[in-house]
Design a protein around this nucleic acid. Structure first.
Length: 226
DNA sequence: GCATTAACCACAG
DNA sequence: CTGTGGTTAATGC
């Protein structure tokens, strides 16, 4: 197995910058790096979790089993921690995380991770900050999902993908229409229709999965107003 | 009433 | 898996 060197990892988390050399060595020896292909599950709902998953690179979707069907919670991109709540919060995973493209993941021994939290205040603070921001964002997306109209949600999602995930106004949708609809709490038909509508209006260029944002200001407006 | 929004159904590439 | 069209129910003037 290839030896890891966390000290010089270019995908290192912000929090890990507060770890000393010896801690990083400890981290390296209690950490496994795994590569995932699109569609593979990095975190499996219901499975025992003894490691904190850190997504070094790649795009993933979070999904959770609801009373009716599996729900996509969000799309996110590395480098980020993807498994803190599910590993610290319980022994068993409460959600799944699936790779949408090639993903590089480090699985950190949960006990080692906890030791860092206990002993290193700066490290712990960084983690708390990440968790706090996540919660704020969750509140935000929660109201948006409930109060925005579908048109606004689609516009928002397209801008989110362009700005946060691909950092480009031209990108390929990493999920099906069905999944996008699920993420936005609507139906495939509505999502399809609204995207066609945007294309018709010249706000975007649409070639099935390939999307190009042409009138960002219009989408911004629609996203805000609903 | 009338318009708008969005889900549901059906069907064709 | 996508894209559309028709229908229907709910909601707001």
């Amino acid at each position: 197995m290839k030896r890891l060197d966390c000290t010089y990892c270019e995908f290192k988390a912000q929090a890990a910058k507060f770890l000393k050399k010896e801690d990083l060595d400890t981290l390296a020896s209690h950490c496994a790096r795994v590569s995932f292909k699109p569609g593979e599950k990095i975190i499996r709902d219901g499975a025992l979790s003894l490691n904190i998953a850190y997504l070094k690179d790649g795009i993933v979707k979070y999904q959770i089993q609801g009373p009716v069907k599996e729900q996509i919670m969000k799309i996110a991109k590395g480098p980020i921690y993807i498994g803190i709540p599910t590993t610290i919060g319980d022994k068993v995973n409460h959600y799944s995380v699936t790779a949408l493209n090639i993903c590089e993941v480090c699985f950190i021994d949960a006990d080692v991770f906890k030791q860092f939290l206990y002993r290193n205040g700066m490290f712990a603070y960084e983690i708390i900050q990440i968790m706090s921001r996540n919660e704020l964002e969750n509140f935000r997306t929660c109201v948006n999902r409930v109060q925005k109209q579908v048109r606004g949600k689609v516009a928002e999602a397209l801008l989110f993908l362009a700005d946060e995930i691909f950092e480009s106004d031209e990108f390929t949708l990493p999920i099906t229409r069905e999944e996008l609809a699920n993420l936005l709490d609507t139906t495939r038909e509505s999502a399809c229709r609204i995207m066609s509508e945007f294309a018709e209006a010249g706000y975007i260029e649409l070639k099935v999965r390939d999307i190009k944002i042409l009138k960002r200001d219009k989408l911004q407006k629609i996203s805000e107003v609903g």
